[in-house]
Design a binder for these strands. Structure first.
Lengths: 325, 325
DNA sequence: CTGTTAGCGCGTTCAG
DNA sequence: CTGAACGCGCTAACAG
């Protein structure tokens, strides 16, 4: 609890000198500097960051909003964001919106209260207007808000096309697509492109739409079981990693063979795709790069650097597993 | 950027009155209160939390340290901690230590700088002394630091015993145990108890020790493959969820049947155990309750309530899957 | 080179 | 019931 005043008194100098000495800003004679450092050590002085924050009107904290931290994609994303922020001297405040727009708003409010210097958002339940009216830096993952809010994302259209083409090449004729992302979010594109390719190729396409803010495993699995009951003859599936895996299990449970009778492709390509047997073929997002771009773009805004790109789209790649031929 | 001063001027009153009116503290006539609220709305006033923080010497932020946010157990834990903290009006600062003690120390320092009101730690690479010398609230998961730092954890000993007994009941005679947690951490107990039961029952036990701060999937899988090459005749496995699953895949890859030839039991019982086929039998920790206890215990400390228990151990339960009989 | 002083924005006495 | 004044701890500007 020792303050800069105590250190000054102890060292027999003024507070200004202490500040300059300890921060290495401005001139201080080597002599008094030594004295000050000794006094600081003796008192166990640690600067109170709250006072600094007030003065600078900055906290060095960045908010990260995700719909569900316990989802492989978002936990991986959050991890890499935190690591990159740490590397650049920032701290990470995390926020699980679990699809509740009030939470999203609550956290956005922290921008106005100066609690965070900026926000990276991967949660999209709240109206875009709420975002646009904020004055501090925001970057968005996979959702276009409008001017002033840079977008970083993967090339979902490319991913949808790659998946569709691979299933077609595998000879699928009746395919299920599980979609479950928020409307207006780039991730939706993979499904429209997928559908388009399937139509062009004359492949029958069934759609299963999951409540997009439920990343609940059971919901996926049970939905899948019911679906298989009605359509036992599908021969291809495309959906997010979790949906794809849920589907695979439901299929295996019925004694149907993968990939011989049904081919499956996931989207995201997280670690979990390598934990199932056979390994899930999936379109892989480069999450680490995504995280780094988010952080760097946000910090460009925070530190007022110029020429920040409004739109950055990353390539995806096909990660071959054992669920396709 | 409107400050309380602006509001006061706009409403034609003093700043003190504005403060009392908006915070509902002290007497303010209904009349002037209305005026103030109107002025505040008109100017879009939002209190600057940094000033408040400085005054109160509190931020309402709790730090959460985990070794790896992209690990099913820790992402689940972090999620539930965040949710409970939010419910109680606190925010969550997250920190990935990835086994680097300097990071752990950096984040601990935030306590002294008053950036966080308390810390919940599930990361244990740093010396216990560093923890004990802090003056602000800390609670620990699965590690005993000493007086002043409450411990919350699952009953690992019980879990180890349950797993061992189930494998014995399943007729296993040569069992592999994959251990990989930090020394001095309660999680270690499950392995010692497991070993003890196996010895009592005269079952042959092999040990594979993984670098405990590597939660890397590939490391687990490759280690497992090598191990199986040397010991193809094991008939039972016990390890963390990830290790158990890595093992299962390596086993299946060799054409060995699960559970007929090898029984497998995991520890943690996260969602991922239900995504593999067959589902992994696992000792399940009650992560949500664990999270809630951590938060409530920490906040008891932060808000200076009395009678905070030093040690809270939660029961675990066996979650039966298809990898045991 | 150094000490003093004025804010940063808010919450709270303490006279009126 | 209300306004003015002070302090939270620190930094930067300004005299000395």
């Amino acid at each position: 609890m020792a303050s800069i005043r105590d250190v000054a008194k102890q060292a027999g100098v003024g507070v200004g000198t202490v500040s300059r000495a300890l921060n290495g800003t401005g001139y201080v004679s080597t002599d008094t500097k030594k004295k000050i450092e000794k006094a600081a050590r003796k008192l166990g002085y640690t600067p109170n960051e709250l006072a600094r924050n007030l003065y600078r009107n900055r906290t060095g904290i960045v908010g990260v909003m995700v719909p569900d931290l316990d989802h492989p994609f978002f936990s991986c994303l959050a991890k890499h964001i935190e690591m990159e922020l740490y590397r650049q001297g920032y701290k990470t405040m995390i926020c699980n919106t679990i699809g509740i727009s009030d939470r999203e708003k609550d956290y956005l409010d922290m921008l106005d209260r100066n609690m965070v210097d900026g926000i990276i958002t991967g949660a999209h339940s709240l109206d875009g207007e709420e975002y646009l009216k904020r004055k501090k830096p925001i970057v968005s993952i996979d959702r276009e808000f409008g001017p002033g809010i840079p977008l970083i994302g993967s090339d979902h259209a490319m991913g949808g096309r790659m998946a569709a083409e691979l299933l077609v090449k595998n000879g699928c004729r009746k395919v299920l697509q599980v979609s479950g992302v928020a409307p207006g979010v780039a991730a939706q594109e993979r499904h429209s492109v997928f559908k388009q390719v399937m139509q062009e190729q004359g492949v029958e396409l069934l759609d299963m739409v999951m409540d997009w803010n439920v990343f609940d495993w059971n919901a996926h699995y049970e939905g899948m079981e019911k679906f298989l009951g009605r359509h036992p003859d599908i021969d291809g599936v495309f959906g997010g990693d979790m949906a794809a895996i849920a589907c695979m299990n439901a299929v295996l449970q019925k004694g149907i063979r993968v990939p011989e009778e049904v081919k499956i492709i996931g989207f995201d390509g997280m670690d979990v795709t390598r934990m199932v047997y056979p390994r899930l073929t999936a379109v892989r997002q480069n999450v680490q790069l995504l995280a780094e771009l988010c952080v760097n773009t946000l910090l460009d805004l925070v530190e007022e650097r110029k020429g920040v790109p409004h739109r950055q789209i990353l390539d995806v790649e096909m990660q071959f597993g054992g669920t396709t031929l």
